[in-house]
Measured scan of single mutants.
Amino acid sequence: TRVETATETAWISLVTALHLVLGLSAVLGLLLLRWQFPAHYRRLRHALW
């Protein structure tokens, strides 16, 4: 049971790290898009909202 718990903890930390990385890359990508294509971003936002 001790090994299982350790594996579970490792998986949880791995998944958390993955989610953090994905979230950060998504935010960075959005910022980059907004910085590179302001007109396109505004049009996209206008279409979405």
Rank of each mutant, 00 (worst) to 15 (best):
T1F: 09
T1P: 01
T1N: 04
T1A: 10
T1I: 08
T1G: 03
R2W: 12
R2I: 10
R2G: 06
R2K: 10
V3Y: 05
V3E: 00
V3D: 01
E4W: 04
E4Y: 06
E4L: 05
E4I: 08
E4G: 04
T5A: 02
T5W: 03
A6Q: 06
A6D: 08
A6H: 02
A6K: 07
A6R: 08
T7D: 11
T7Q: 13
T7C: 00
T7R: 08
T7G: 09
T7F: 08
E8Y: 09
E8N: 08
E8W: 06
T9H: 07
T9Y: 14
T9F: 11
T9L: 10
A10D: 13
A10C: 14
W11N: 14
W11I: 12
W11Q: 07
W11T: 08
W11A: 14
W11Y: 12
W11S: 12
I12K: 14
I12R: 13
S13I: 14
S13L: 10
S13D: 05
S13V: 15
S13E: 05
L14G: 09
L14S: 07
L14F: 10
L14T: 06
V15R: 12
T16E: 04
T16G: 08
A17M: 08
A17S: 06
A17Y: 05
L18F: 09
L18H: 03
L18M: 12
L18Y: 04
L18I: 11
L18D: 00
L18E: 02
H19C: 15
H19N: 15
L20W: 08
L20Q: 01
L20S: 07
L20T: 09
L20G: 13
L20V: 13
V21W: 13
V21I: 14
V21K: 01
V21E: 00
V21P: 03
L22W: 04
L22E: 00
G23A: 14
G23F: 11
G23N: 01
G23M: 15
G23K: 00
G23T: 10
L24I: 13
L24H: 00
S25H: 04
S25R: 02
S25L: 14
S25W: 05
A26L: 15
A26M: 07
A26E: 02
A26G: 15
V27M: 07
V27W: 06
L28Q: 01
L28F: 11
L28K: 01
L28R: 00
L28M: 12
G29A: 12
G29I: 12
G29C: 12
G29M: 13
G29V: 15
L30I: 14
L30Q: 01
L30Y: 13
L30V: 12
L30M: 09
L30E: 00
L31T: 12
L31S: 07
L31E: 00
L31A: 09
L31M: 13
L32P: 00
L32K: 02
L32Q: 01
L32R: 01
L32I: 13
L32S: 04
L32G: 04
L33I: 10
L33K: 01
L33W: 15
R34F: 14
R34D: 00
R34A: 11
R34G: 13
R34P: 05
R34L: 15
W35V: 05
W35G: 05
Q36M: 11
Q36S: 07
F37C: 12
F37K: 13
F37A: 13
F37Y: 14
F37S: 09
P38I: 11
P38G: 13
P38V: 11
A39N: 14
A39Q: 15
A39T: 14
H40E: 11
H40T: 14
Y41D: 03
Y41L: 14
Y41I: 12
R42K: 13
R42S: 13
R43I: 05
R43F: 07
R43L: 06
R43E: 04
L44A: 04
R45K: 12
R45G: 04
R45T: 11
R45I: 12
R45Y: 05
H46A: 07
H46D: 06
H46G: 09
H46C: 09
H46K: 06
H46Y: 10
A47V: 08
A47F: 12
L48T: 06
L48E: 00
L48N: 01
W49P: 02
W49S: 11
